[in-house]
Amino acid sequence: MKTKNPGLALFSFIVYLFLLGPLLIIAVTSFEPGTVLKFPPTGFSLKWYQNIFDVEMFMSTFKTSIIVSLLGNVIAILLGVPAAYALNRVTFRGKDTLNAVFLSPLLIPGIVLGFTLLKYVVITFHFPIYTSLLIGHTIIMLPFIIRVIGSSLANFDFAVEEAALSLGSSRLATFFKVVLPNIKSGIIASVLLAFLESFNNVDISLFMTGPGVSTLPIQMLTYVENYFDPTIAAISVLLMLITAVFMFVIERLLGLTYFTKQ
């Protein structure tokens, strides 16, 4: 069915302008040569991009962010894939409850999670801040792993697994030889989505800062509160590029319809 409704089309156009305009404006202002962000910019310069690499704090927090997101992702995969498999492979009593528990980090306010981690894991149980940061990020990545891999497994015909078993393959070997290759794209997509979620996270990282430990978004937040030069705009452009690349890969693997079918 087609609607030729010019009013609706115009309205949608304006909404898209509202959604994407600000990001475009950031991108444009990142080339500002002056020390104060202006729109439109007064000229063209890449010096604020250069500045990112000159400010030690950006580089070190970027490194922390990458390490935490990657390592957290590995842990989340190790914890999440077996759980997603168990939750989708068989029906058992209490399955819905367990599923809800695994997805609950999505519903509990991030700021609350961050605070309780600080109060109990760091202060009461004396976990190092860096470890706690990693734990916090693993917690918020788990639901993405469970959900995306879960939907891959839900579409997987488990008769295929039984076929391998009946042909003499052991359970573990079957998982690696038959199940894993067929949910590969789900795993990659979930890793990318979880990575973005973790890399952009503010709510948890906010509480997990300490001597020499902070993530890039927190560093950006602190920077914005004190300076108004185009460095943040330049970093934003780089982050948006990473997002665009990730999205392209996810689209290739799952199709964009994945996003509308949650």
């Binding site: 015909d157 008769a159 295929v160 039984e162 076929a163 391998a164 009946s166 038959v178 290759p181 067929n182």
Partner: peptide
């Protein structure tokens, strides 16, 4: 075992 859904290994 021959399955209703054939259950061939897709990969």
């Amino acid at each position: 075992f021959v399955f209703q859904s054939y259950a061939l290994f897709p990969h």
